[in-house]
Design a protein around this nucleic acid. Structure first.
Lengths: 202, 202
DNA sequence: AGCCAAGTTAGTCAGCTGTTCAAGACATAT
DNA sequence: ATATGTCTTGAACAGCTGACTAACTTGGCT
């Protein structure tokens, strides 16, 4: 019987919760299912967390942090267009890599809308704001209007969300990979038209 | 006490179910809540439907039918680009008009993915196929490759889905109205690039 | 009047929920 | 060896909510 530290167990529970939420939804994410997924005893969950709500608070933070890391890891690129493309591609590649995370994030957003709670909206909002910040950084030499930044962030989010929905619904990795390229080309065409620069020949 | 025909009651229950699903999610759509929303007695629901599942079957059909009507009502337009634009705009305008329907549809798709049931995926799939059919019709004089049709349908769906997610999350009608225009312009830019500069084969 | 569709009341009963507790097992320090 | 603090567990608790139903009353048509 391997003894595991509380810290490690907490982390296990968070990952297990993401997995369970992805499969059973927020309402279906019961303490029993999460414990089973984490290969831990049910009582263990309440040994590590005072309540289910405490665990979920950590789950929200985990998801939000993942988005932050994602945007940060797409280093500053030379041009605004490069940055935008890299942001969109980065998110979609991460979605492709981790369907469970994607599903859980979608589930959280949907749940947030229903509950009118600020928490889940915060996940969506923080992610969007981080994207805006990255775009502002890339355009710092030729500052753009706030409205333009908002629009670009919105288009990136829209294409990423739409991609996620389709990929999760069909679960077809090959199709999703092609759709990723389509989404990128959509962003590029629009940016070229919107910003008035000639597009790079494909 | 006004007596209402079973047929009318069934219709009431379907509409009530859509409303309840939008607010409480699929799991939260209990018979009690649906009956209350329909201003009917709980036992009445089981008088009109043998089971909750039977009611939900009608709800799926209702949602799928709504999408069919939506695509059909966007009359055939002269050009492919016109048709595509009209399809996207039609869906988004309907989303804007009926948030409950939008939320319920999203909820259904999410639920379908979790349950691996064919039913909910069918909603998404049927909608996409109807879009493809409309596009094929518009391009009948200069037939396009199936792959191109698929791509256009995918982009329309992606933009519509992303729009829906954002609009429901923030609930900001003014912002959503502007984002609708942005989405249309994104589609237009991409179509121009995709159809204008691309030969028959890529 | 007779008849049936529409509507109601007041449940049944099963299943699952978050949470707790007392007790045991392990590793380390004294 | 004994004590200590950390992990681990099976079994329960108490309560709620779910879908569904039997038996009854009411309304309206012929």
């Amino acid at each position: 019987m391997a003894r595991i530290s509380v810290a490690q167990r907490r982390s296990d529970f968070i990952n297990a919760a993401v997995e369970v939420i992805a499969v059973h939804g927020i309402d279906g994410a019961t303490t029993r299912r999460i414990a089973e997924q984490a290969q831990a005893n049910l009582a263990m969950l309440h040994y590590c967390y005072d309540s289910k709500e405490d665990l979920f608070a950590d789950v929200y933070e985990f998801v939000a942090g993942r988005y932050r890391d994602l945007v940060k890891s797409s280093d500053p690129h030379s041009t605004l267009v490069d940055t935008a493309r890299q942001l969109l591609r980065g998110v979609m590649e991460w979605y492709l890599e981790s369907p469970s995370f994607t599903a859980a994030a979608l589930e959280l957003i949907n749940w947030a809308r229903r509950q009118h709670g600020e928490r889940g909206i915060a996940v969506y909002d923080q992610a969007l704001e981080t994207v805006r910040a990255a775009l502002r950084g890339a355009a710092s030499e030729h500052p753009l209007e706030a409205e333009t930044i908002d629009q670009i962030a919105y288009v990136i989010a829209t294409l990423a969300d739409g991609f996620a929905l389709n990929w999760l619904t069909y679960g077809d990795r090959a199709a999703a990979t092609e759709q990723m390229e389509t989404a990128v080309s959509v962003l590029e065409s629009w940016l070229a038209a919107r910003l008035g620069t000639t597009p790079v020949a494909q």
